Amino acid sequence: MGIIGWIVLGLIVGAIAKLIMPGKDPGGIIVTMLLGVVGAFLGGLIGKWIFGTGLNEFWSIRTWILAIVGSLIVLGVYRVVIGRRAVKGG
């Protein structure tokens, strides 16, 4: 999958992750979608490490599941880190 495919996949799964984990995020939907790009990359790495395959084909269900799982992980970590900063700062 090319870089454009990664970006498009990441933007879409970032929005899906936001739907799965609703709540107030600092930065809004744009930041969440950008975190989705990072999450898609992380999902590819997880797939490579655990299953021996990463994100190969855009329309593969495995690609989408791995990207969504990676995005949920990144979104969760982001909320924990930013939430702690907000508590300390305010």
Rank of each mutant, 00 (worst) to 15 (best):
W59G: 12
I20S: 00
I4W: 12
S71Q: 03
S71A: 12
N56E: 08
L55G: 12
T53W: 13
W6L: 13
L72D: 01
L19H: 10
F58W: 05
G10L: 04
L55V: 14
L35K: 00
I16T: 08
L9W: 02
M33P: 02
Y78R: 07
S60N: 14
I73T: 05
L72P: 00
G27K: 10
I46C: 03
V13A: 07
L42R: 03
A86L: 15
E57H: 12
W49R: 14
P26V: 11
G2A: 09
G39C: 13
I4S: 10
A40H: 07
G36S: 12
G36W: 03
L55H: 08
V13R: 00
I82A: 06
Y78K: 05
G23H: 07
L34C: 01
G5H: 10
I20V: 12
I16R: 01
A15Q: 04
V8R: 02
I50Y: 11
G10C: 06
I16W: 04
V13H: 01
I65H: 09
R79A: 01
M21Q: 07
W64E: 03
V69R: 07
G70M: 10
L35F: 05
G10Q: 00
W59K: 12
I61D: 11
R62W: 15
A40Y: 06
V74A: 08
G23L: 08
I12S: 10
W6N: 14
R62P: 06
E57R: 12
G89C: 14
V38D: 10
I65M: 11
I82S: 04
G76S: 15
G28N: 00
G90T: 15
L45W: 05
G36R: 04
M21A: 13
R79G: 01
L55N: 14
L42H: 02
G36C: 09
R84T: 07
S60A: 14
I20E: 05
L45H: 07
L9C: 09
L45P: 00
I16N: 04
G14A: 03
R85Y: 07
K88S: 03
V37A: 03
V77R: 05
E57V: 12
G83V: 09
V37N: 02
G83D: 09
G90I: 13
A67G: 06
N56M: 06
G89N: 15
P22Y: 06
L45Y: 04
V31G: 01
S71E: 05
K24M: 10
V81L: 13
I68D: 02
I46P: 05
I20N: 01
G39Q: 13
I20A: 09
V13Q: 01
V13C: 02
V81I: 15
N56T: 00
T32D: 09
F51S: 00
G14F: 04
Y78S: 07
G23P: 07
N56K: 01
I7S: 07
G10H: 04
G27R: 10
L66A: 12
V8S: 08
G39K: 09
I3C: 08
L72I: 10
R62Q: 15
L42E: 04
G28T: 00
A67H: 01
A40D: 09
A15R: 03
V69M: 10
K18Q: 14
G83C: 09
M21R: 12
L11V: 08
G43E: 08
K48F: 02
P26H: 13
G70Y: 04
W64Q: 06
R84I: 11
I20Q: 03
A17T: 14
I7H: 06
V38F: 12
I82H: 02
V31D: 05
G43F: 03
W64S: 02
